[in-house]
Nucleic acid binder design. Structure first.
Lengths: 200, 200
DNA sequence: TATTTTTGATTGACTCATCAATCAATAAAA
DNA sequence: TTTTATTGATTGATGAGTCAATCAAAAATA
């Protein structure tokens, strides 16, 4: 069986498996065995490549974040005008892959873990900052900087809030409705500023 | 030592201790020993009164929710006009006791747990529904019902989002700023409807 | 009142299961 | 033969849950 060059293959398989298992069970309290089984290898191999569970978990958040960043970059490049870019940012946050119950459960688990692990926390802070700065960058073309910062803060909060509420699956607001709500927030605040600038 | 009638005293002490320990460590993965120690009793006693860790945890969410509900009722009673009641709802969500890092960490841990425990999930759904229905009840006095529902959804999401963002302690938006952001959301959307109803 | 019985409160010690981590051994390339 | 991939077996730690025993207040009885 043993072929050479398996390391990157196994690493990826294990990280993906970790994400799926964590999403399934909605917690980081999954066993290395669970993860390894899902990846089709022995638990010992997972330790061999990652050294510890902690490390595998860290690689897993990193992977989750990388995915989101790549999607964001793509979406941002596809848009041209600032207002379009704002819509792109909103859409990416709620795109199917991000909004799937499993993914949401995984995010939630990592947020909780961030209370303990400085490493995990750092990654999530990066996410939060990136979203905020992307929003601000495009908003400030359309309005004064301090308003841009305020609106960005609100929009980011709303996105995260819709996300967390989704995790309860109580009154499932759909993807479309979530996007509409956030778009509406941005639009109405920009309109408001526009009116204030040029009172009828 | 043994006096009669200790049961309610110990139950409360244990639930309070659980909340503190969970808040401290930011996870439900705390041991019964930790909790019992904090409550000043033996682990065995915790099992004696609650039967299982799961059960103690459930009582703990319940307690967290009861506290929030009581605060909400009080705040709601102190306000009279619908718009004031909306402000009261917002203020309660961000009041110091709710916004303390420990409390936020505990909420987050329970949200994550809700992915596994149907009981915990039920309690959190109750919270979400209650907030939503309180908001709608007061909003619909000020605008059409369907708009009220939309705004309530957005406000609730924003509250939860500000909450979760607070947990990262990256760009610490303060209590006041959080309240202002949410107030602003409600106000500007109500204004917008008002303007649409009576175009200049 | 004094004595015995009952009952609630409480714990130390123990069991049992789980799990992360290690390691020595094996098998297949190179 | 050396290196890389892989695993089964094992270990050590941890933690939930159990249980029999203890202690003291309360209640019943003498």
């Amino acid at each position: 069986m043993p072929k050479v060059g398996m390391e990157p293959v196994r690493r990826k398989a294990l990280v993906d498996a970790a994400l799926r298992v964590i999403g399934d069970q909605g917690t980081l309290a999954v066993t290395m065995s669970d993860i390894a089984r899902r990846a089709g290898v022995s638990p010992a191999l997972a330790h061999h490549y990652f050294g510890s569970k902690e490390q595998l978990l860290i690689e897993t958040v990193r992977s989750l974040l990388r995915q989101l960043r790549d999607d964001t970059v793509t979406a941002l490049n596809a848009a041209t005008a600032p207002r379009e870019k704002l819509s792109a940012l909103i859409r990416v946050s709620f795109q199917a892959s991000q909004f799937a119950p499993d993914t949401i459960a995984a995010w939630l688990a990592f947020y909780s873990e961030a209370q303990r692990s400085e490493d995990v926390r750092r990654f999530l802070v990066v996410y939060a900052r990136r979203l905020r700065s992307n929003l601000v960058a495009n908003l400030k073309v359309l309005c004064p900087v301090d308003d841009a910062e305020r609106i960005a803060e609100g929009a980011a909060a709303m996105i995260d809030g819709l996300y967390i509420r989704q995790s309860l699956r109580s009154a499932p607001i759909g993807i479309e409705a979530s996007i509409a709500l956030t778009e509406d927030y941005v639009t109405s605040h920009l309109d408001q500023l526009y009116r204030q600038g040029r009172p009828a």
